[in-house]
Write a protein that binds this DNA or RNA. Structure first.
Ligand SMILES: [Mn+2]
Ligand SMILES: [Mn+2]
Ligand SMILES: [Zn+2]
Ligand SMILES: [Zn+2]
Lengths: 143, 143
DNA sequence: ATACTTATGAAAATGATTTTCATTATCATG
DNA sequence: CATGATAATGAAAATCATTTTCATAAGTAT
């Protein structure tokens, strides 16, 4: 999805919620939409401050919360104590494999696993809403 | 594994590390070994304080860290902001399914999923050391 | 322009966990 | 049984990510 399209979705979400549009929020969103990693708030704040040093980190926190709320960002925790955000995946849902030495993160999709998950849940009487699958180990370079 | 056996393992770990044995640590460990849930520190502290009100929470934190280190406790994060600990599973590794309404936690094992995980990792050049699989949704009672 | 409401940035607050530090306990060794 | 060296404890302070507060500054409908 294009950054433009995302900005439109954000704008309409803001409208329906009775919020007001602001330059700071727009700029933070724009910067985030251009990222293609699992970015931490600190990293995003740094990027944003390059052009707008006056922006406070509370505003970045609030904006990322908003983007997550309206489905334009995904919040992830990989166990390093801070939340990381990623853009909506272009090709559907994916899970992660993380190198415990160099912190490299790769993404993967596995239909069979997904299917076995819902099957397992059904057996236990659960309706699955979301899941978290993370593999931790050593990448090719760190093995 | 019996509590007794666990106490022995702990004792030998303490010896090899050149640590000293203390009544507080033994008692915290003993109380923990008797639990069969995913217990939070707060909950464990409360249990411990019933017989030993003078124990500080730092000691409980330190003891659970030690137990995790020597493999007698497993630390889990289910996304509610606090670490929970569980005893070594009697029947091997398991994963979790969590109700997002009533917080009920069920455990499950699925060989096929485990196998697909290592297969996926291998394809990506990774050697898996550990993994985290959590399903979130509504339990039978909360659906 | 006005009035009303939301947003912002700085600073303070929060909550889980860790660290510090003075004191106490453990444990080899004499 | 002392003694001395070192680890452990508990209370309080410190951390660190995140949230909240609050005075001030926009945004927006009229
Ligand atoms: Mn991803
Ligand atoms: Mn469990
Ligand atoms: Zn690596
Ligand atoms: Zn439930």
């Amino acid at each position: 999805m294009s950054t433009l399209k995302k900005m439109e979705i954000l704008k309409s979400y803001i409208e329906t919620k009775g919020l007001k549009s602001t330059a700071q929020r727009d700029y933070i969103a724009e910067v985030f939409f251009k990222t293609n990693t699992h970015i931490s708030l600190e990293e995003l704040l740094k990027k944003v401050k390059r052009k707008t040093p006056a922006i406070g980190y509370a505003t970045v926190y609030r904006t990322m919360k908003l983007l997550t709320e309206c489905g334009l960002a995904i919040a992830r925790q990989f166990g390093d104590g801070q939340t990381r955000y990623e853009n909506l995946p272009e090709h559907g849902h994916h899970d992660h494999i993380i190198c415990i030495k160099c912190s490299k993160i790769l993404e993967f999709q596995n239909e069979k696993i997904e299917h076995l998950q819902s099957e397992t849940a059904k057996k236990l009487g659960f309706t699955v809403i979301s899941h978290k699958l993370e593999l931790y180990g050593y990448c090719a370079g760190c093995a």
